[in-house]
C-alpha cells in the first residue's frame, strides 16, 4: 500500500514539483480560454452562414456543410499535426510570411498558436452544430413576426433568433468547452508544455508519475464545478419548460 501511494500519490514529490505542473496547467488554461473563445465565435459564424437564405447563397451553405462534416470527421491530433507542420513547412520555404507560418504573437510561442488554430477549426465545427440546433429550436413564428415588422433576414437573425438560440444552447456549449479543455493535452505532441507534458517531463527525469496525478487534480478542480454548473443550468431550463414557458 505504501508503494502505491509512493508511486501515484507522492505528496512530497507533488509539493517539490508543484511549480512545474502548475506552470503547465496555466498554459492549459490559457489555451482553453483563448481557443474556446475563438471556437465559440467561429462556430456561431458557421451556423449563421449555414442558415443564409435563397438560391444564390446555396454554394456558401454547401461549403459550410462540407467544412463542418470534414472537421467533425477528422481526429483533432491529425489536424494539429497537419496544421503545425504544414504552416511551418510553408513558412520555411517562403510560401507564406514567417510571421504567419510560425506565429509568435503576443509573446506566446508557435505551438500555442497552432493549438489555438486547430482547436478553433475542429471545435468550431462541433459548436456550429450546437448553435444550429438552437437556431432551429426557435419557433418559426419568431422569424415571421420579425420579418413581418420589416426586418431583413440578417436583422431577424441578429436581434431576434440568435439571442434566443444562444440562450438555449449554453449548456451543450459548455459541455463542448469541457471537452476542448481536455483536448488541449494533444497540443503537447507539437511541443507545447502544458499540464500533461509537464507531468511527462517530471516522469522522464524522476521516474515518478505523481506529477500527472497532480495535473489530474488541477483538471478536476476546474472541470467538475463546470459540469455541476451545466447540470444546474439544464435543471433550471427544464423547470422553466415545465411551467409551460418557452
Amino acid at each position: 500500500m505504501g508503494d502505491f501511494f509512493d508511486i501515484f500519490f507522492n505528496f512530497q514529490f507533488m509539493a517539490d514539483h508543484f511549480d512545474v505542473v502548475f506552470k503547465g496547467f496555466l498554459v492549459t488554461l490559457k489555451l482553453s480560454v483563448v481557443g474556446g473563445a475563438f471556437a465559440l465565435t467561429w462556430g456561431l459564424i458557421l451556423a449563421v452562414l449555414r442558415q443564409l437564405p435563397g438560391k444564390v447563397l446555396a454554394p456558401v451553405r454547401w461549403i459550410v456543410i462540407a467544412y463542418i462534416d470534414c472537421l467533425r470527421g477528422l481526429p483533432l491530433l491529425l489536424v494539429i499535426m497537419l496544421l503545425a507542420n504544414g504552416l511551418a513547412t510553408m513558412a520555411s520555404q517562403g510560401v507564406i510570411p514567417r510571421e504567419i507560418g510560425i506565429p509568435q504573437w503576443l509573446g506566446e510561442n508557435d505551438p500555442f498558436w497552432y493549438g489555438v488554430m486547430a482547436l478553433t477549426l475542429t471545435y468550431g465545427a462541433y459548436m456550429a452544430e450546437v448553435y444550429r440546433a438552437g437556431i432551429e429550436a426557435v419557433p418559426r413564428g419568431q422569424t415571421e413576426a420579425a420579418r413581418s415588422l420589416g426586418m431583413s433576414h440578417g436583422q431577424a437573425m441578429r436581434f431576434i433568433i440568435v439571442p434566443q438560440a444562444v440562450r438555449k444552447v449554453i449548456p451543450p456549449l459548455l459541455n463542448d468547452f469541457i471537452a476542448l479543455m481536455k483536448d488541449t493535452a494533444l497540443v503537447s505532441t507539437i511541443g507545447l508544455v502544458e499540464a500533461v507534458q509537464a507531468g511527462r517531463d517530471l516522469y522522464s527525469e524522476f521516474y515518478n508519475p505523481s506529477g500527472w496525478t497532480l495535473g489530474a487534480f488541477m483538471f478536476l478542480i476546474v472541470t467538475i464545478p463546470l459540469a455541476r454548473f451545466v447540470d444546474r443550468l439544464i435543471k433550471k431550463q427544464n423547470e422553466k419548460f415545465q411551467r409551460g414557458l418557452p
Binding site: 415571421e144 413576426a145 415588422l149 434566443q164 418557452p246
Partner: peptide, 12 residues
C-alpha cells in the same frame, strides 16, 4: 402590420 394567432411576441 401583421398580428398572428399565436402572438409571436419575442420572449426575451
Amino acid at each position: 402590420g401583421m398580428v398572428f394567432q399565436s402572438f409571436n411576441l419575442f420572449p426575451n
